[in-house]
Simulated assay, not measured.
Amino acid sequence: MGTDRIHGRTITAVMLLLLSCLIAGAPAAHAFFTSAATAKLTAGTHILAAPADNIITATCLPLGNSGKHRLDIIVVSHGTVPKANAYALTITDPSNNKVTRDLTTTVRGYSSNSAASGTWEYAVEAQYQVPDTTNAWSSSSQPLRISC
C-alpha cells in the first residue's frame, strides 16, 4: 500500500507537470546562427568636359520698330564627350531666365520672334543622364553671347 501511494503521487506529479506545460505553453526553443558576409561599395566621381568643336550660328534681327527681335540659335554640330549620353543647349535671356533644349531630339536650336533687347547667352553642355531617373550631371560650358 505504501508503494501504491508513492506511485500514485508520482503519477499525480507528472500529470500536474504536463498539465502546467500545456497551460503555460511549452518552453521556447533557442537557436543561435552566425554568418559572415562583406559588401563592397564602389563610389566615384567624374567631371564631364564641355563639348569642343561646336558649330553654332546665332542671329538676332530687329522686327520693325516693335522693340522685339527675331533670335535664332542653331546648333549645326557639337563635339562629343566621353561618358556623356546627352547634349543640351542652354539659353539665358537678358532677365536671366533659362531655357534648355535637348539636342538628342530633332530640335537643334532655339528661335523666338519676341526676343527682348539685351545680351543673350547660350552654351552647349554635355550631360550624363542617370538611367531610369530624372537625375543628370552636366558639364560647365563657357557661354557665348549675342546682343539683340
Rank of each mutant, 00 (worst) to 15 (best):
N54I: 08
Y87F: 14
G25I: 08
T10N: 05
I91V: 01
V75K: 07
D53W: 03
T3D: 14
F33S: 11
G79H: 05
C60W: 01
H46E: 12
P51K: 02
A50S: 11
N54Y: 12
K98G: 13
N96S: 12
C21A: 13
L17H: 07
K98W: 04
V99G: 10
H46V: 11
G25N: 07
A49H: 07
T10K: 11
S95C: 05
G44W: 01
L61Q: 06
R70C: 02
I73E: 00
F33P: 05
P82E: 04
N65R: 08
T3E: 13
F33K: 11
P62G: 02
I6T: 09
A37Y: 07
I47G: 12
M15W: 08
I23C: 10
A29V: 02
N85D: 09
K40T: 15
L71D: 02
A50R: 05
A37M: 05
T38I: 05
A37E: 06
T3Q: 13
L18K: 05
A49Q: 07
N85S: 05
H46I: 11
L63A: 05
C60A: 07
K40V: 15
D93S: 02
S66H: 13
I6H: 14
T59I: 15
P62E: 09
Y87K: 01
A26Q: 10
P94N: 03
T57D: 13
